[in-house]
Design a protein around this nucleic acid. Structure first.
Length: 495
RNA sequence: GCCCCGUUCGUCUAGCGGCCCAGGACGCUGGCCUCUCACGCCGGAAGCACGGGUUCGAAUCCCGUACGGGGUACCA
């Protein structure tokens, strides 16, 4: 097969059924990187977003919306497609019915298709009787006589339209797997539209790829076996003048969950937007997902989108399935958190702070100022944005609503702990200046030096008294920000 | 069943015939740093599925086997 010499055009073609999957993110990302890389070398590089909603039963508007939301959050901007328009629209298959009907009509006129009146049980019965090993349709209706057609019609049967698969074999040079060949005897004649006239994916995807001038199709491995059918259909479409070139295909490996099963929609780890809600950074998720089947270099695995685009080559993509490892995803995300300046983390954490009720919406001036001071304390120790409100809550909460973690209280504010807190209270109450340095010195002197406590034993109870948790921002800084009044009050209330 | 795809540490990968008694990362683990946590730093255990070829030489090429996955719809 020849390489299309036309400018590179790729597409992302999700069907809006259910909540978007991380596998979709990976496919979208690789398509995006492929397009943008082509752009860099002046080979075109248009990234199209088309929505495959031909299945009216399963498609939902909610799913459609969340897919767009996902791509926007990730920054995987599409050049052409749904909502943004373009020269080959519309980009929702549900709005392209006339096109499909027209192509189907022309295909039928050239005998590339035939009407099929069979019922599934009949096909199955024939298969059993013949002992054929090939599942699927047997081509029974390929050459029906007009009498047979009459008879079926008389029974009230409505035909669906099947594509007549050619004899021989079909092979293509898969962009990620190399040469793949199917004997067409194992590729049954497939349905192009339902008996009620609704077009099926088998028709719509190739028709759209043809009419949208798609040059490279990068998609999931699950579509591998539908490729010979699409190539055959492309040959027919070229004959009737609907298509010019057959795109090049590349089949990306699966993203699997725990064990050896494909990450299913039931798996909570599968839902892409859940990562946003947990406080993942889009660059973190993207980076991790890129690692599933691709690598930028032997000794490096943290990079941003731009670097990926620069380095991406579909030939480097692995053909074997990858398991999604949450731990590593989090680690990669952490690396991206560390790359961000404090102001940026603050900016991105704001929605989380608001959602948790830590600050109001809009943010009050006093809270904004406090946030400014507190953010540097936590920015370098949180791994996900959602941890920010947990870490900072104690500073913003009104005193009467302040609570402590029960388990931490039991563990650290026992009799011994309360003695430490009492000592801390007394040491700090006398302070002339309320500053981190002064607080630290006072506590260090009385608790560690005078009482002879180990630092961790000394400060643990104080930390729980002040912040309510065993895990918190640095203690002395926290006390300074909390202020003398509130700090003393909390120490006292812990007794 | 049949067709197709895949197989390097637990996981993601580097490797595209000699640079590899296999490198990195996450995880695990010993230690350091340390007011908690997180980060960071130093060290450790851990892998070429198996069997045949080809070759002076194979993780790399070929063929089998085993195992895993997908498809086999009037879903996509």
């Amino acid at each position: 097969m020849s390489t299309p010499s036309t400018p590179v055009r790729v597409r992302m073609a999700p069907s809006p059924t259910g909540s978007p999957h991380v596998g979709l993110v990976r496919t979208a990302l690789f398509n995006y990187a492929f397009a943008k890389h082509a752009q860099l070398s002046g080979q075109g590089g248009t990234f199209v977003l088309r929505v495959e909603d031909t299945d009216k039963e399963r498609s939902t508007e909610e799913s459609y919306t969340s897919i767009l939301e996902l791509f926007r959050w990730l920054g995987l901007d599409w050049d052409e497609g749904v909502e943004v328009g373009g020269p080959y629209g519309p980009y929702r298959q549900s709005e392209r019915s006339d096109l499909y009907r027209d192509v189907l009509e022309r295909l039928r006129a050239s005998s590339y298709t035939y009407d099929c009146y069979c019922r599934n049980d009949e096909v199955e019965a024939r298969r059993k009787a013949s002992g054929s090993k090939v599942m699927g349709y047997d081509g029974f209706c390929r050459d029906l006589t007009s009498e047979q057609v009459e008879a079926f019609r008389a029974e009230g049967r409505e035909p669906l339209v099947r594509f007549r698969m050619p004899e021989g074999s079909i092979s293509w040079d898969d962009l990620v797997r190399g040469e793949v060949t199917f004997e067409t005897e194992f590729v049954p004649d497939f349905a192009l539209c339902r008996a009620n006239g609704d077009p099926l994916y088998t028709l719509t995807a190739p028709v759209d790829d043809a009419t949208m001038r798609i040059t490279h199709v990068l998609r999931g491995e699950d579509l591998l076996s539908s490729t010979p059918r699409q190539i055959a259909l492309f040959d027919a479409m070229k004959e009737i003048g609907v298509a010019e070139v057959t795109p090049l295909y590349g089949h990306l490996p699966y993203v699997m969950g725990e064990g050896n099963k494909k990450l299913s929609k039931r798996d909570p780890q599968a839902h892409a937007l859940a990562y946003r809600d947990q406080g993942f950074l889009p660059e973190g998720l993207l980076n991790y997902v890129a690692l599933l089947g691709w690598s930028i270099a032997a000794d490096r695995d943290v990079f941003d989108l731009e670097e990926m685009v620069e380095a991406f080559d579909i030939k480097d993509v692995n053909a074997n399935p990858a398991r999604f490892d949450l731990k590593k995803a989090e680690a990669i995300n952490t690396a991206h958190m560390r790359r961000l300046p404090v102001e940026e983390i603050q900016h991105r954490a704001l929605p989380f702070l608001k959602a948790a009720g830590v600050v109001g919406d809009p943010v009050r001036d006093a809270d904004a100022q406090l946030l400014e001071l507190a953010m540097p304390l936590v920015a370098e120790r949180v791994n996900k944005l959602a941890e920010v409100p947990q870490m900072l809550g104690f500073l913003f909460v009104p005193e009467e609503e302040f609570t402590r973690d029960q388990a931490d209280v039991e563990k650290l504010l026992d009799e011994e702990g309360r003695r430490v807190v009492q000592a801390a209270h007394d040491a700090v109450a006398a302070l002339g200046t309320w500053s981190t340095a002064a607080i630290q010195e006072a506590l260090q002197t009385t608790l560690v030096e005078e009482l002879g406590l180990k630092p961790r034993v000394a400060f643990g109870p104080v930390r729980v008294a002040i912040t309510g948790r065993r895990v918190s921002p640095p203690l002395f800084e926290s006390m300074e920000l909390l202020g003398r009044e509130r700090s003393l009050a909390r120490l006292a209330s812990a007794l």
